[in-house]
């Protein structure tokens, strides 16, 4: 059984946020109005998180694309009183939106703040509702939502593979964020398969997990920025 995981190479990431918008269009995440956004009620399953250090002119900034990390030991699922969230055998931290009662225990339990509450009825003014993806539900007001690793894409990829009578191949199933990345900084695949690209990258010395010390065991693995190692001539 596969164990789905993602690798994000911070050296290649340009912080363009295409992944953020790709996620939003794929998963019917509504754009909240400016006044609500100002109160911190924007919904974004994937955000680019800046971490700024230093003073002018010695400033540095790490920009971290942060989806749900799909922890192997997720703190959010333990606190759900109604079993609306859980972890699938393939390692996806799922959220059954229809079952959620909106108590928001999980939003508080997630150390990465990757769970978002629908404070308002989703609005798609004018023709914007025409662009909704029929594969994904529109979550009603009062429900917590989160990244599903574009689970509907897995379902479809699996069906396609089954119909073609072949096993699911690497690259058949990619979440929307990974697929769109213009700098190909995001990788996705089966961490269990030692030959997969993600497994190979996860073994890299640059690999780290975000806030690993919390014991959450995330399945989104980052590759640190690395450095330029000098010119050809100098190395010679």
């Amino acid at each position: 059984m596969p164990r789905w995981g993602m690798v994000i190479d911070l050296a290649k990431c340009t912080a363009c946020q295409a992944c953020v918008v790709a996620c939003q269009t794929e998963n019917n995440v509504p754009c909240v109005e400016p006044e609500q956004a100002a109160r911190g009620r924007r919904i974004s399953w994937l955000t680019v998180l800046p971490e700024l250090h230093g003073d002018y002119p010695r400033v540095s900034m790490r920009l971290l694309p942060l989806p749900c990390l799909h922890c192997d030991s997720p703190p959010c699922i333990r606190v759900c009183p109604v079993g609306a969230t859980g972890i699938t055998p393939e390692g996806v931290v799922r959220q059954t939106f229809a079952r959620c009662i909106g108590c928001r225990y999980c939003t508080n339990a997630c150390p990465y703040t990757r769970r978002m509450f629908n404070w308002y009825r989703p609005e798609f003014p004018g023709g914007l509702s025409l662009a909704l993806n029929p594969d994904v539900s529109v979550r009603p007001k009062g429900v917590v939502e989160k990244c599903t690793l574009c689970h509907h894409r897995l379902m479809q990829a699996r069906e396609r593979a089954q119909a073609e009578e072949r096993p699911l191949a690497e690259g058949d199933y990619l979440p929307a964020c990974v697929e769109i990345c213009p700098a190909t900084a995001m990788y996705f695949g089966d961490l269990e398969d030692p030959d997969s690209k993600v497994a190979e990258l996860a073994r890299s010395p640059r690999a780290f997990r975000y806030l690993e010390e919390l014991g959450t065991e995330p399945k989104v693995i980052y590759l640190s920025e690395g450095e330029w190692t000098g010119s050809e001539e100098e190395r010679r």
Binding site: G86, T88, P89, V92, R94, T96, F97, A98, R99, D135, V136, S137, T148, H151, H152, M155
Partner: peptide, 10 residues
């Protein structure tokens, strides 16, 4: 057939 919630709920 397995009854994983995620297979049907979206």
């Amino acid at each position: 057939v397995d009854n994983d919630c995620n297979r049907c709920h979206r």
